[in-house]
Design a protein around this nucleic acid. Structure first.
Length: 982
DNA sequence: TTCTAAGCG
DNA sequence: GGTTGCCGCTTAGAAT
């Protein structure tokens, strides 16, 4: 386009786009769209880029702020270090990092600009703002009209008779419906700032600018600054005559901070003299090369904008091929060249997701895994070579080996890497034994010093341009985080498998290798031994460790190549990108924090329980007339139903007497003292063994307990918690709540518990679209009472607790896939009566019967059901021949969309929570999730601000993807222990 | 390792 | 025509 150059002049119109703020805006706008539009089929985030292109296309064709351009420039920041850093090192100092997904698509922005036939304008040592200033002045001086497109208020300095400032609306609305300024002329600037554009730098010099870390003068805000400038004319005059200021305090700070103000002005003042790297004349808009633009869009997998361009230029879409070369990311060799290529079918730009899936599967089955070829890296040179290769590939599988199973305390023993070409290596770091020679520190010889290796690996593991692949990466993330490495971006093959195949089998690496690669992995026990002979991994010989560890990385990479393409092909990209991937660091941080437990409380409880147990045991044995083990259900059964001949005994599937609580309760109601005592004993024994005795063993030196949440353990999308399970801490009985009360905040802090009220019933009302339930929820009426009123024809005002209780049981039964038998059992009524209830329920709420029937039919046909966010839960056994089994699976299928949708909602809330809190400068920390409840630890003086924020994030969690037909309600409370907070 | 019971949502 | 039976988890202890 430089061939058509002509100098700018009167009648010309120039749009100057502040590239980085533009792409930021674009990113947040893209976040308001369904996630499926924001990722390419290889998982690369492209949402910001898509919005960027849509807007750029719009500016070129239609103009911005009512100005249709003859010239246009996208101006970028070349690097972090501008000349402002040289005069003030703290400039833009503590800026939060851009979101991970945005960072990954940044390199492609220049490609997008070029695809439009434009030149990305950037210059070393200068910020985009300075170049925009220089262009704006030059163009305005020549008589052209200028529009500056930016979200950065600093650029409002440049507004003048021929220069406007334009900010297109951010996708995210702030508090009080705040919207950024847009389309400002000189009048608009004066209205916004109280001063004309040329004085903005003076204002900022006084007030400072927190976002850029410009100091300013302490205690001077915008109001005072404007007033002072009105009084004295400009900053220099003000500073010279500061002695004349009446207010003593203000006078002193201004005199004292005069230099700071001058420095601040230098920082905020834009450098109009910046040497522009591209002459204005070369910014003339030429006709777009639509073929090239479409080829780029196709490589990015944009659809709507691609069609729009094709229509505009009357081009046959199918005749244009995607050109991955146009979307390489970065402009020179060596700079994260792979960001635009990751996962694309090699040399086949037309590969459809389905073909790619097939190709990868065949490839995986054809490629033999060769353990002999794994490398063991024992010196820096070979490690550096591997790091370079990983960088070149843009993708690397990663696995850590440690000396214990707990990610919170394990020491790093080694790291393995795997590449897409099937190469894999192991880097031993802290092996201490086996048959290898070791030195005086106990470390086996021939290992790269840990610090050296980590220093070399850290940039690779943290850089946005190289995708890391892990399996159950939360573990590795936690281990590496303790060595100061925050790995990103990461794909997790366990989570990809979970999204694709929940319900179809395990998601452990061994399972997946068998299933997808037909490969049997070396088992951990084979190298480390099992039972008494088991050793920790640092005692495993390095050669053996290499085949085991490198294989893990190798298999992980191969699994990724097989599974990842299925995300796009099976329309599961959104689920993976919005509900799974971002949750890994969130959960990891929660686990790392742990929750404090009061050891004394537990130890006292243990003694209390022990005492009660002894007493009960004696009474029980006396009543039974013999000594036996109360903890043995079989012996209990033999005593109650055999020896004492109590009525109504049932057998378990294995033929022994069944003694569940419900059976014992029934006997107790009939007046038998023994079953009641056994029940009591069992409760106390459970509380003692599982909680008061066991929990202290999990406490760290600070008295905190770190559970492990599993993200891929359930069929429905719920999390699970283990070692210890903190999702089943007692709450239903007074004795149990004493355990819960042992969970406490740190001094000066409170615990906040926030839980969704009736979330599953609300989801049922939404999915099945039940008018009465929707109305009851909308009106905030007690839902069980409303159900009872509808079912039993009793006005709400006359509702009795008994009818409400029955309705409540029925409501729960419905969620679980009700049966007359089950309901009868629960309510202690006859089967006929229970059947009549169900019949009546379905007559009043026919939509629920429809939902149940449709769900069963759907599941039978497709083998899976889905949550409202598209998570699939597979039930292959739905076609089982056995009627009982089939009915059981049908109930699961009915329940899964309800339970799973609730799980999705709280996942969304959790993912947003951290940013929302830190964005509001609050220090609350999320500690636990218990399915519909989140537990936080919060500084006492922030409780009042934190509760509304948490509540809002949880209530609004389905947005913007979905708007439920019922409101979500959240109850939150702060207290000094978990029992009181709940 | 499997079964039974009990803790939670 | 008898049987079984309400969803999702983890842990402890006994029995195998």
């Amino acid at each position: 386009m430089s061939g058509k150059s002509s100098a700018i002049g009167k009648g010309d119109r120039l749009i100057l786009v502040d590239g980085s703020s533009f792409v930021f805006r674009a990113f947040f706008q893209s976040m308001n769209q369904d996630a499926k539009y924001n990722y390419r089929s290889d998982g690369l985030p492209t949402g910001a880029l898509r919005m960027f292109c849509v807007k750029l296309w719009q500016f070129i064709r239609e103009g911005a702020a009512g100005v249709k351009p003859t010239h246009l420039a996208i101006v970028l920041d070349k690097s972090e270090g501008s000349f402002r850093r040289e005069i003030y090192p703290e400039y833009k100092g503590h800026r939060p990092d851009a979101p991970e997904d945005l960072k990954r698509q940044m390199p492609l922005m220049r490609d997008a600009v070029r695809a439009f036939g434009l030149i990305p304008v950037e210059l070393e040592r200068y910020e985009a703002d300075d170049l925009i200033a220089a262009y704006a002045r030059e163009a305005a001086a020549a008589g052209a009209e200028v529009v500056i497109v930016s979200a950065d208020k600093d650029l409002m300095q440049l507004v003048g008779p021929h220069v406007r400032f334009y900010d297109f609306e951010s996708g995210i609305k702030g508090k009080n419906g705040y919207r950024p300024e847009r389309n400002l002329d000189v009048e608009g600037v004066i209205e916004r700032w109280g001063v004309p554009p040329e004085k903005i730098a003076d204002v900022l010099a006084l007030t400072g600018d927190t976002s850029d870390n410009v100091p300013g003068v302490p205690g001077i805000g915008p109001k005072t600054a404007v007033q002072l400038l009105e009084q004295f004319g400009d900053l220099e005059t003000l500073l010279e005559r500061a002695g004349e200021i009446r207010q003593p305090k203000r006078r002193e700070t201004l005199i004292e901070n005069a230099d700071k103000a001058r420095l601040s002005r230098k920082l905020v003042l834009l450098d109009e003299k910046a040497p522009v790297p591209v002459p204005l004349a070369d910014l003339t808009l030429a006709e777009i090369d639509a073929q090239k633009l479409i080829a780029f869009f196709k490589a990015m997998e944009f659809t709507t904008i691609t069609k729009r361009v094709a229509t505009e230029y009357d081009i046959d879409l199918n005749a244009v091929e995607a050109d991955p070369e146009l979307a390489r990311g970065g402009d020179s060799a060596g700079e994260s060249g792979a960001a635009g290529e990751v996962g694309l079918a090699e040399g086949d730009p037309q590969a459809s997701p389905e073909r790619l899936v097939k190709q990868r599967r065949e490839e995986a089955q054809g490629l033999k895994i060769d353990r002999e070829a794994y490398e063991c890296l024992r010196d820096r040179d070979s490690l550096d070579k591997w790091i370079a290769d990983a960088r070149e590939a843009g993708i690397v599988a990663l696995d850590t080996e440690t000396d214990s199973l707990s990610a919170h305390s394990a020491e790093l023993v080694g790291i393995s890497l795997g590449l897409p070409d099937g190469r894999a290596c192991y880097i031993p770091l802290q092996h201490r034994g086996g048959s290898d020679l070791f030195d005086e520190t106990g470390l086996v010889k021939g290992q790269i010093p840990l610090d050296d290796a980590l220093a070399a690996l850290k940039p690779l593991l943290e850089e946005p341009g190289t995708l890391k692949i892990g399996h159950n990466f939360k573990y590795d993330w936690l281990v590496l985080a303790r060595y100061g490495i925050e790995t990103a971006p990461v794909d997790d093959t366990m989570l990809i498998s979970y999204v694709l195949d929940a319900g179809r089998g395990g998601h452990g690496m061994d399972d997946l290798a068998e299933r997808h690669l037909g490969h049997t992995t070396i088992k951990f026990a084979e190298v480390a031994g099992s039972g008494k002979k088991a050793v920790s991994f640092d005692r495993v010989g390095i050669e053996e460790a290499t085949s085991y560890a490198a294989e893990d990385a190798d298999v992980t990479m191969r699994l990724w190549r097989v599974l990842q393409p299925r995300l796009a092909a099976e329309a599961k990209m959104s689920v993976y990108q919005t509900l799974e991937r971002p949750l890994v660091p969130v959960i990891a941080c929660m686990e790392r924090r742990g929750i404090k437990v009061d050891r004394q409380i537990l130890s006292r409880l243990s003694s209390d329980f022990a005492q009660t147990l002894t007493r009960l045991e004696e009474e029980i044995q006396e009543d039974a007339g013999e000594r036996f083990s109360v903890s043995s259900p079989r012996q209990i059964g033999e005593i109650l139903f055999g020896k004492l001949g109590l009525p109504g005994g049932k057998k378990t599937p294995s033929g022994q007497w069944a003694t569940p609580a419900s059976a014992l309760e029934e006997l107790a109601e009939q007046g038998h003292p023994l079953p009641a005592k056994i029940l009591e004993w069992r409760q106390q024994a459970k509380l003692k063994s599982t909680y008061s005795d066991a929990l202290p063993n999990y406490m760290d030196e600070k008295g905190r307990v770190h559970t492990s949440f599993s993200l891929a353990a359930t069929t429905t999308g719920r999390l699970s918690s283990s070692e210890p399970n903190l999702q089943n801490i007692p709450v239903r009985t007074p004795a149990g709540r004493k355990i819960r009360a042992a969970f406490v905040p740190e001094k000066g802090m409170k615990l906040i518990s926030a839980d969704y009220s009736q979330i599953e019933l609300r989801i049922l009302a939404h999915i099945a679209d039940i008018p009465q339930l929707r109305k009851a929820f909308a009106d905030g009426i007690d839902i069980h009472a409303a159900t009872a009123s509808e079912m039993f024809d009793i006005p709400l005002a006359e509702m009795t607790s008994e009818y409400r209780r029955r309705a409540k049981t029925i409501n729960f039964g419905i969620i679980y896939g009700i049966s007359a038998f089950g309901l009868a059992n629960r309510l202690g009524i006859g089967r006929e009566e229970a059947g009549a209830y169900i019949k009546q329920y379905f007559e009043r709420f026919p939509g629920i019967r429809d939902y149940m029937e449709e769900t069963k039919t759907y599941c039978r046909e497709y083998g899976y059901v889905s949550t409202i966010f598209g998570r699939a839960c597979h039930y292959p056994a739905i076609r089982a021949g056995n009627a009982n089994e089939r009915m059981a699976v049908e109930r699961q299928a009915i329940n899964a969309p309800i339970q799973g949708s609730a799980a999705d909602i709280i996942r969304r809330a959790m993912i947003r929570m951290e940013d929302a809190l830190s964005g509001s400068k609050l220090h609350a920390q999320m500690l636990l999730q218990v399915h519909d409840e989140l537990i936080f630890e919060v500084p006492e003086d922030e409780v009042d601000q934190t509760i509304p924020l948490i509540t809002r994030i949880m209530r609004e969690a389905p947005h913007p993807a979905l708007t439920l037909k019922v409101p979500l309600e959240v109850e939150a409370r702060a207290a000094d222990n978990w029992d009181e907070a709940h």
